[in-house]
Design a protein around this nucleic acid. Sequence first.
RNA 1: GCCUGGGUAGCUCAGUCGGUAGAGCAACGCACUCGUAAUGCGUAGGUCAGGAGUUCGAAUCUCCUCUCAGGCUCCA
Length: 657
Amino acid sequence: MVEVVLPDGSSKSLSEGATGADLAASIGPRLAKAALAVRVNGHLVDLSTPLATGSQVEIVTPNSVDGLDVLRHSTAHVMAQAVLRLWPGAKYAIGPTITDGFYYDFELPGNDRFSDADLERVEAEMRAIVAEDQPFVRQEHSLDEGLAIFADQPFKSEIIKAVGESASEEDLREVGYGGIVSTYRNTENFTDLCRGPHVPSTSRLGHFKLMRVAGAYWRGDEKRPQLQRIYGTAWDTKEALEQHLYRLEEAERRDHRKLGQELDLFSFPSELGPGLAVFHPKGGTLRRLMEEYSRQRHVEGGYEFVTSPHITKAELFETSGHLQWFADGMYPPMELDEGQRYYLKPMNCPFHVLIFKARQRSYRELPLRLFEFGTVYRYEKSGVVHGLTRVRGMTQDDSHIFCTREQMNDELASLLAFVLDLLREFGLNDFYLELSTRPPGKAVGSDEEWNEAEATLESVARAAGLELVLDAGGGAFYGPKISVQARDAIGRTHQMSTIQLDFQQPKRFDATYIGPDNQRHQPIMIHRALFGSVERFIAILIEHYAGALPTWLSPEQVRVLSVRDDHDAYAYDVAASLRSDGLRVVVEPATEPLGSRIRKAKLEKIPYVLVVGDDDVTSGTIGVNARGGNDPERGVSVESFRERMRQEIASHSRPED
RNA sequence: GCCUGGGUAGCUCAGUCGGUAGAGCAACGCACUCGUAAUGCGUAGGUCAGGAGUUCGAAUCUCCUCUCAGGCUCCA
């Protein structure tokens, strides 16, 4: 007899040699059908694994993250088998699961490439494999046996050899723990290296779709061969798959590049080159509104406004260390004035250090908070530019705070509160924090400094009471950082503000202040961008709101439509009256049918459409058609609409709220 | 930078076997005068991303460059 403990604490007795599958069957037929794997004492294993007495066990179904993971990993194996059937002699590399899906990397014979049409062929072959109801049979081997099995598979062999030496978590996932090589065999002709577990049979799979082909470097190293990768998604039910595909469509519908064009906000003229945007009048208005609000808040927050030029002699970035670390990411220098090299600035911080250093500073001036909308240029590699989120020219809402070591903790805490509050005003309210620590191999400064900086940031982050995740090794060369991550309206996360601690720049520039002890001291420098870049923040806002911006940020807040052209004069009067309140109002006179003009205004996502006709001219009212509603109000007084707008704008809310 | 796939009117797209350019929307003009998501008619709009080649003839075939998308790598 075997006795196991279930998640609810109860125990279950099974006959000797019973497996996870037997356990599931003993609990109920529905669970037996849903079971994909079993968790034994915290480890995921196959359903076919015999259970040991006293084990803590849990049947894994597709309702859990683990269950979907098993499903997707098994689907990846099926895809590999399909590719090997269609391209005999193909080499297969790794096929892990990722969020919502999986991928698998291959090297095709003759350096052949997958085409989009091949995806359909592979998918058809996968469905055949599913229909064949092939079992996943686990086998364990020694390293030498493993090498023999995969003798003609160089990528698999490399992984097995790596396990003998220094195994990474990724490799162990592919192979297995404890010096054994585990494989899963589907047929005599297809065996894959894998730690497992897998579903019992390919028939358990089926709700998948191959999404796209892409190139990917072997082991992510651009110096190694580029493999052909196929991405797929897989789910337990048809409905879940369809929902996932719908979410992708929704993300596409919100794409800021598409909305930016449709709403006439900005464009990327090819004459300018990749990653260089121009903002049209409406996009320019949005930018101005964001910047004005940000400036006002920074004034209230005790910041001082500075500006700095766009180009500088090389010396500045030599001193700061940027040329040493990031020359690749900077535009090449211009030679001026007999060999002087000038660079476009990729960062604002060294300029702010110079402003700090412009005269003798006293501890009484600290914390000194310098703020600038600073436009920087970074030479992003050609393949990485992406809409407004990854550009070559951008404006940072950058500030650098100089303070004493004693002030550092309080300053960081109030800074974090300031940042979160401002983001909430823009309508983002679901946050978590990420702590990025010392980057191995490219950090400057002593261990003590790094440890202190990391500990300080961590305590401030913890005190903020938000979820905190660790991004080990993700810091900049000069210091660790906290970044605020925000979830948007469709659950995607975006890195927003970053707060970085920096002991290095003040030292490199020999920036000092005179303390109460009449001695020179080095200030701490805190780097902080709130929007990150104005461009990127605009992109995130557009996607978050699907283009339907809150009224205070809408370039055009109100459009006034006359029913007939003899109402035009009244429409202009209403508009003038609202403009005197500072509203952004446009009149569209009656040259086209009303329905057509309403449709146009709706497509432009204007918060309020006002319609004025005979009744309104007579009684001095307006018809109000709010965005997001489908029951326009008639006979509204201009004064009550005015009040509604005042409140909505002051509260930064939207007509649909 | 690398891989895969694109680039035809302002936008979205069609264009067969290589035979010389098309639609809808938008713009402009005229008519229509209308109460909540598309009024009608007309006009104009193109070095088919750019360059070179093959050909009697290229949007179409070949090569190079630019540029966009999806990935990889990178992201101070």
